[in-house]
Structures are given as C-alpha cells and as structure tokens.
C-alpha cells in the first residue's frame, strides 16, 4: 500500500528540493488539473507539495515587459491594467479560457502545465494511451477525436494542449522562468513545449522538480493590434475547437510584424511562423490572410474526427486577422 502525504512548502528552495528528491512528489498549485487527474486515477503522487503560499504572486511592470509571478491567478492577470491596455490578446484568451471560478483558482504557471483533456488519457480503463502508458498505442486515433490536435501530432498521440492563454503567450514570445535544484534558467515559451509526434510523454522541457516561478511577457509596441478569437460549439465554458491569437504591427499599409498563435489544433500551443512569414511585408488584405492561413495548416495530420479543423482553423485565423485589421471580405 502506498503512502500519501501533503506538505506545505516553506520557501521556493525547499519546495524544489523536496520535489526533486522524491520521484513520486508533485507540486500543487491551483489544483484544477492536479486534483482532477488524481480523482480520475491518472496521477497518483505520493507527496503533494503545496506551493500556493510561496511568494510567487503578483505582477511587476517594466517598461517593455511584465513579469508575472507563477502563482498569479488567471483572473488576476486578466484584470491587470497593463494587460487590459497593452495585451488585449492575453486578456481575451484568459477570459475565454475558463469560468470565473476556475480563473480564481488556476495559476498562470499551472495553466501552462495543464494536461490534455483527451478522454482516453484521462480514463485509466482505456488501455491504449501512449502518453499514460508508453508503447500501449493511441485509442484516440480511431476514437472520438473532435477535441484533438492536428498539428505536431502523429498516430502515436493526437492529444491537444487546450490552454488558451498559452496560445497568446507563444505568439508574444513570452519567456518562462524556471528554478531547479541546479539553479535558475529562462526559456522562451516557444521552446518550452515539445510536440507529441515523436514522444507523447514529454510535454515540455521541465525536469522533475523544476518549478516555473514566473513568466515574462513582452508588451506589444504602441499601435500594435492584437486579438484572440475562440471558436467552439457553446457560447462559453468550453475548450476551443480552434482558436487564433494574432498580433500585428502595420505601418504605411504594410504588415511590419506578425505573431500568430493557434489553439485547438496543436499538441502544444501552436506558433504559426509560416503564416507570419506570409504576412510580414504584405499589405493587410483578405487574400494575404487566406494564404497565411493555408501556410499555417500545411502540416496538418488528421483523423476523420479532426479533419474539419483544417478548414475551420484557416477560416478562424482569417477572421481573426480581419477583426484586428478591420478588413472585410
């Protein structure tokens, strides 16, 4: 019979040391993924290290960047005046990302580490899940796959990373601050996540025991346009079928800079650089947007349940670009 222990970390160093030294220990923050998966029997840590009282709350405002403590809640970040004024893409993604109750619980660090909603992963009675038991197969590939990914996937795993705000943050070149027992490091969010196509288990480059302590979000330049569009069946309270977060700088009728994130499609929050390349240097026009969207989805790998997402994601990206640039069809 296995033990189970709950401990409250005294400080960051102690928390990191405790989890690093115990292969069966996990951090506990907002709990919205951790507690849920423990109940499902998918996660069975023997020690939970509650970090919610560590001094990792709050937002510091620099001239070009905001530094967000990892334990800042989604609701707190969405309400930050700088986020409201300068990062509408982040605010919209946060507000569309969960109910207020969940936003009050979920921390931004935890949000980045949320686990896939794939029901085959979350139900231990399903034998075939390469993410849960490596080598067992993927039940989703031949299963109900409407909420699954089409980019960065393969027949090994089509699990979706369902975060909304992470889509905005990869588009913004946010940087994750990490502390481990070997010290601290900072990693661009675009390099933080790993695609599942090759290895469904490793979802990011955190080593066991490493803790996200904060996120640096570069502010968009004055005059940049940004927005986030989430497409789903219900009006609210649902994960994205597809979503798009875009930020554009347009000068002299030409797109000078473009950042595109796509949600609901990737095994990780998807940065669509190929679409950005199409946009940069081109005038804001629907034809350009369509070409960019086609480029973004060029590498899609679908199963029957997800095939519609290729077209829907393109239309969603086009619409989002139209919305932020006020270009009509």
């Amino acid at each position: 019979m296995r033990a189970f222990e709950y401990v409250r970390a005294a400080d960051v160093d102690a928390a990191v040391a405790t989890v690093t030294d115990d292969p069966f220990a996990s951090y506990l923050a907002g709990g919205t993924t951790q507690v849920d998966l423990m109940k499902d029997g998918v996660l069975a840590p023997e020690r939970l290290v509650d970090i919610t009282r560590l001094p990792l709350h709050g937002i510091e405002h620099g001239p070009d960047t905001i530094h967000v403590g990892a334990l800042t809640t989604m609701e707190e970040l969405a309400a930050d005046p700088t986020v409201v004024a300068r990062l509408p893409i982040v605010r919209e993604a946060l507000l569309l990302g969960a109910s207020t109750q969940l936003r009050n619980m979920a921390t931004i660090g935890g949000n980045l580490l949320q686990r896939t909603r794939c029901r085959y992963f979350r139900d231990p009675s399903v034998p075939a899940c390469n993410k849960r038991s490596p080598g067992s197969g993927c039940a989703a590939v031949t299963g109900a796959a409407r909420m699954h990914a089409i980019l960065g996937v393969s027949d090994r795993c089509i699990a979706l990373h369902a975060s909304d705000v992470a889509v905005a943050l990869v588009a913004l070149n946010a940087v994750v601050r990490i502390q481990g027992d070997q010290g601290r490091r900072s990693v661009p969010l675009t390099e933080f996540y790993l695609e599942s196509a090759e290895d469904p288990v490793a979802e990011n480059m955190l080593a066991h025991g490493e803790l996200i302590t904060g996120i640096e979000i570069p502010l968009l330049p004055e005059g940049a346009r940004s927005g986030y569009l989430k497409v789903r069946d219900r009006v609210s309270y649902e994960f994205a079928l597809v979503s798009a977060g875009v930020a554009l700088v347009i000068e002299d009728g030409v797109i000078q800079d473009a950042r595109i994130g796509l949600g609901g499609v990737g095994s990780k929050p998807w940065r669509a650089r190929s679409a950005e390349e199409v946009l940069i240097g081109a005038p804001p026009a629907v034809e350009t947007y369509r070409a960019a969207a086609a480029a973004a989805l060029a590498g899609a790998w679908t199963v029957p349940g997800t095939a519609f997402k290729v077209e829907l994601a393109q239309r969603t990206l086009v619409r989002t670009l139209q919305n932020v640039t006020e270009v009509s069809s």
């Binding site: 709950y6 709990g31 507690v35 109750q101 619980m105």
Partner: peptide, 14 residues
C-alpha cells in the same frame, strides 16, 4: 473569491 470546492483540497484552506 468564488472557486470550485471539488477541485480545492481542504488542506489548502488552512
């Protein structure tokens, strides 16, 4: 703040 009691551990509410 409104939260979900089903995903909050009692121990976290010390």
């Amino acid at each position: 703040k409104r939260v979900l009691a089903c995903l909050t551990l009692a121990a976290q509410c010390e």
